[in-house]
């Protein structure tokens, strides 16, 4: 991360923390923001966040490591989360998983080399009646079939501004 970027993020962190009166209840919203903007929460960001809330950095790290939507490792611009819970499993999530790996040429848990896509399994998405279901960032897809996978992935790949390297996701 460039120094100026860190400064900019730090300024945002301080501003958000202030909005919450530096109360700890504002911690997770700040973490969510940092995750969204920089696709992970770096050790430096954790330091800055800890400072803003006047708590120890390890407290911040403890929270980050607890939640599956927060991460210390840099994620792709688009995070594909395929539901692995029972109803989606019975509806054929394995074939969809296989095709996702083929289309993106990575395995689950990995990020593509161009930093565009991360592939993950997730627990129940609440679409059990329309499985297999998956999320791409915030967008939900139901009744996904292996044939539909390529089109869904392409719709993100071809999105305007998808290849811009910095800033919020498209």
């Amino acid at each position: 991360m460039l120094a100026s970027e860190r400064d900019q993020l730090k300024a945002e962190i301080i501003k958000m923390a202030k909005k919450h009166d530096q109360h700890r209840s504002g911690l997770i919203p700040v973490l969510q923001h940092v995750q969204n903007v920089s696709r992970h929460i770096s050790p430096e960001a954790m330091q800055d966040i800890a400072e803003a809330f006047k708590i120890h950095p390890v407290e911040v790290q403890g929270v980050v490591s607890f939640y599956s939507f927060l991460s210390t490792e840099k994620k792709g611009k688009f995070i594909v989360r395929l539901c692995r819970t029972i109803s989606c499993d019975m509806a054929g999530k394995e074939a969809v998983a296989n095709q996702l790996e083929n289309e993106l040429d990575i395995e689950f848990g990995e990020t593509t080399d161009d930093g565009m896509f991360t592939l993950e399994f997730t627990n129940c998405l609440g679409m059990c009646d329309q499985g297999p279901a998956m999320l791409v960032n915030e967008d939900i897809y139901a009744k996904v079939t292996p044939e539909k996978v390529a089109d869904i992935i392409d719709s993100y790949r071809n999105r305007f501004g998808a290849h811009v390297t910095q800033g919020e996701h498209a």
Binding site: H23, R24, S25, G26, L27, I28, P29, L31, Q32, F53, G62, V63, F66, Y67, S68, F69, L70, T122, N123, C124
Partner: peptide
């Protein structure tokens, strides 16, 4: 509205409150 961050356990009411307060759930 307060957004969760992906943790099944936060459906347990005291874990939910911990999470709202900015802690591990």
């Amino acid at each position: 509205i307060h957004m969760g961050s992906g943790a099944y356990i936060c459906g347990e009411e005291t874990a939910l409150i911990e999470s709202l307060e900015g802690h591990r759930g």
